[in-house]
Design a binder for these strands. Structure first.
Length: 272
DNA sequence: CTTTTGACCTGACAGC
DNA sequence: TGCTGTCAGGTCAAAA
């Protein structure tokens, strides 16, 4: 479900409700996520106060004095703030309650997400340590992409979706940025010129920033921490456009499978 | 080393 | 009202 803009939206929405709040209860309804929720997590979190919340790639990090709660939403995960006595719903697997009588609820029907704990530097956690650069970081540039692409013969779409190259770009935004940059998603990453990577890097930043501003893309179930939907789905130019014409040239759009993910493009505009 | 494939899950929807 | 097949904002390990 969530890519960088959705995860960022969720983090921003959660902060006012949970930062500086003391955890009162920890409830695990189902620990069978992508990885089991660690058994000792209740002990680790007990009576801790959330110091800050931030994002690395698609991971959400909640820090406390004793360590860090690492959350990944997988395909279908959401984090919601509800009154602590609100009845628990289906697929709410993990709930924290706080001194302010609010609760943080992790809901994930498909259970592809993860809830983990570390008492070390979370950025050095095995799942996070290999993550590539943040696309909104100033050091994310055309030159960075160009250099990293040198050994990559794979399709450019798979290259920019590779979290070890750059984090946070998933299927929706990969399709959107390549359409904006007029690059065919099948182009081998190592054959793209520095000039085209300049355009691509610029579009990645522009589109991700815009999507954050619009509070993410709601196709099925993305909402912020208070249940509010995003609106970037209204700005999508290519993702999900089956049997539609290109908004730039009116050519009928094409969709294929690339690495098991549906890939949309315009044969005329993205014809390099 | 890079690239491809299968696996992990539930729910929604189309077609019979 | 079923049943079956397909698809979905992700990503890891194993195989090639």
């Amino acid at each position: 479900m969530p890519e960088l803009p959705e995860v960022e939206t969720i983090c921003r929405g959660l902060a006012p409700s949970i930062v500086q709040q003391k955890i009162i209860t920890i409830t695990i309804y189902n620990n069978k996520l992508r990885y089991p929720i660690p058994k000792n997590i209740s002990k680790s979190l007990a009576k801790q106060t959330i110091q800050k919340i931030y994002r690395r790639g698609k991971y959400i990090l909640l820090t406390t004095k004793k360590g860090t709660l690492i959350i990944h939403l997988g395909m279908s995960g959401t984090l919601q703030i509800k009154p602590k006595n609100h009845p628990s719903g289906k697929h709410e697997h993990f709930i924290l309650t706080f001194a302010n009588d609010l609760s943080l609820r992790y809901k994930d029907p498909r259970r592809f997400g993860a809830i983990l704990w570390t008492n070390k530097d979370p950025l050095k956690h095995p799942l996070l340590k290999k993550l590539g650069i943040e696309p909104l970081d100033n050091n994310f540039t055309a030159n960075y992409l160009y250099d990293r692409a040198k050994s990559k013969h794979c399709a450019v779409k798979q290259f920019i979706m590779n979290n070890e190259v750059v984090t946070g770009i998933g299927n929706i935004y990969a399709n959107e940025v390549l359409f904006a940059a007029k690059i065919n998603p099948l182009t081998a990453a190592n054959t793209i010129t520095l000039h085209r990577y300049q355009i691509l890097a610029k579009e990645i930043k522009k589109i991700l920033r815009s999507a954050i501003k619009h509070r993410g893309t709601t196709i099925q179930d993305h909402t912020d921490s208070h249940g509010k939907q995003g609106s970037f789905q209204n700005k999508l130019k290519i993702y999900g456009k089956f049997d539609e014409n290109c908004c730039r040239c009116q050519t009928k759009l094409t969709h294929i499978k690339l690495g098991q993910r549906t890939t949309f493009f315009c044969l005329f505009c993205q014809n390099n």
